[in-house]
């Protein structure tokens, strides 16, 4: 049985539950997991129940990296580190917005831990509000499409690049839609000494508005259209990419989700789609995806 036990309260088709399960599949029992506030935390630990088969701590929204660094310091100080892996698993808001400072501090200090961002591109736990992980033109409850708006007007923050600037020995992007790839990367990140980072693309059926049975399908479309490039970085250099055969146009990804629906119905939406296609094209060129 998975170390993330069944019976939790995640939505059917939940990307966070998949991510949590894959992370624990990669790590096994000898780990300590730190979660910031978010869906994963809430649906796995309604007191007195817990889905976690490994030691787990949730403190606050913005401090998971600091808490993880304290766990690491404690184990080191007490001579109990052995092979225990210390992992923080946070959402895009907890990672790229409110928790960014604590992450920067922990990476700069060089703690031996792995931070995993499970990026479902909005504040899903509070009801689909925009975060700095929200892609351009996605409609969220705080960046809604409207008569004079195409949704979120800003580009997604490039979080792996920020981590790379800290000199992390290992950074990878992954997707819940490519489980063996994600598990391999999490395993590798955990085994490498020092602060490592895995940024996982995680399609949220509730927030992105697609059927719960389509999580993997939508996740694959993000990769196949080159909107979510899968790559690895070692010591801030890109060392590996997942090549795309028969790249698909971004429309296929966008039209599978309700959050981009307005781009296909509003006048001027085609321009938006073009802009998104340009982002995909840039990814192809920049990472050499073809």
């Amino acid at each position: 049985m998975s170390l993330l036990k069944p019976g939790h309260r995640g939505c059917a088709g939940c990307c966070d539950a998949l991510a949590g399960k894959f992370v624990l599949d990669a790590l096994g029992e000898d780990c300590i997991v730190v979660s910031p506030t978010g869906c994963l935390e809430v649906f796995t630990t309604p007191y007195p129940e817990s889905a976690w088969g490994v030691p787990w701590i949730h403190s606050l929204f913005e401090n998971a990296a600091a808490v993880a660094s304290g766990v690491e310091a404690a184990l080191k100080a007490m001579g109990k580190m052995n092979n225990t892996k210390i992992i923080a698993i946070g959402g895009d808001g907890a990672t790229m917005d409110i928790g960014l400072q604590a992450i920067s501090g922990a990476f700069e200090r060089g703690h031996d831990f792995t931070y995993i961002c499970v990026d479902n591109e909005a504040y899903m736990n509070t009801g689909i509000q925009r975060s700095s992980g929200t892609p351009m033109y996605a409609s969220t409850t705080t960046s809604p499409a409207g008569k004079v708006s195409f949704g979120n007007p800003l580009n997604k923050k490039n979080m792996p690049a920020i981590i790379a600037a800290h000199g992390s020995p290992y950074i990878a992007t992954a997707s819940v839609a490519y489980a063996p790839d994600m598990i391999r990367k999490v395993k590798k990140a955990a085994q490498i000494k020092g602060p490592t980072y895995v940024h996982v693309h995680a399609p949220c059926c509730t927030g992105w508005k697609f059927e719960g049975s389509k999580t993997i399908e939508v996740g694959r479309l993000a990769v196949e259209t080159a909107l979510w490039p899968l790559y690895e970085m070692e010591n801030s250099e890109v060392t590996g990419v997942r090549k795309i055969k028969n790249r698909k146009p971004v429309e296929e990804y966008l039209k599978a989700q309700g959050r981009f629906k307005h781009l296909f119905t509003m006048e001027g939406g085609a321009e938006g789609i073009k802009k998104i296609q340009a982002t995909a094209d840039w990814n192809v060129k920049h990472f050499g995806l073809e």
Binding site: I57, L60, V67, A68, Q101, A102, G105
Partner: peptide, 24 residues
């Protein structure tokens, strides 16, 4: 002991939350 130079008081106390929960 591990002496941690952190980047804010918020992380100072947060790190101790993790450390204390780990038994330190």
């Amino acid at each position: 002991c591990e002496y941690m130079n952190v980047e804010s008081e918020f992380s100072a106390i947060s790190a101790l939350i993790g450390a204390s929960a780990a038994g330190a």
